[in-house]
């Protein structure tokens, strides 16, 4: 049968399988093209202040204020299937009750290769608090700069761009900044 309908059917089926093959090839190419980036994380100061964080609880709780310097060259992560990078600084520590915590304290979306040379000095943009309301007797924290590559098509991949060289302890609580 060579009706118009079957011709349309065949053509669109062929086109869509070509499309799928192409998309698959592009998403697989990400694995070959990705190289690992380099970066440094340095914590310049940490203060812990007892305060009211109205958003979460009306009770008083410890808030940490972390100042840090980041330098990272993320340009090798940009290839034809990189839509954007989600870059985030994560604090990892165990509190006095033995709860393991991972908290993102800063993040940035990088959309162009031109912006991928990161130089940043500043403080945490998200509130850094502990689940037990206090940082007292918490173990020292590791700070890691991590990234998530978000592709145009395919799998999301994660990686690490830098880490503090040693664990950093939380200072004693201050009543005010």
């Amino acid at each position: 049968m060579h009706s118009i309908l079957s011709r349309i059917n065949n053509a669109s089926a062929f086109l869509s399988s070509c499309m799928m093959a192409l998309l698959l090839a592009i998403s697989l190419s990400s694995f070959i093209l990705t190289e690992s980036p380099t970066g440094q994380v340095a914590i310049s100061s940490i203060k812990v202040v007892s305060s009211h964080a109205r958003r979460y609880s009306s009770k008083k709780q410890d808030l940490a204020f972390v100042h840090f310097n980041l330098t990272a060259d993320l340009t090798p992560l940009f290839h034809w299937n990189t839509k954007q990078l989600f870059l985030y600084l994560e604090a990892e520590y165990e509190n006095s009750k033995g709860v393991k915590n991972e908290v993102v304290i800063w993040d940035r979306i990088v959309r162009r290769k031109e912006d991928a040379n990161i130089k940043f000095a500043g403080k945490n943009s998200y509130m850094f608090r502990d689940i037990s309301t206090t940082f007292k007797n918490s173990a020292s924290a590791n700070y890691t700069l991590k990234y998530n590559i978000m592709p145009y098509v395919g799998l999301l991949t994660y990686g690490e761009a830098g880490k503090t060289t040693e664990e950093i302890a939380f200072p004693a609580t201050q009543s005010r900044l």
């Binding site: 709860v99 393991k100 915590n101 908290v103 689940i131």
Partner: peptide
């Protein structure tokens, strides 16, 4: 949405 904090409570 993206995960911002994890707390592995026992």
């Amino acid at each position: 949405h993206r995960v911002l904090e994890t707390h592995d409570v026992s």
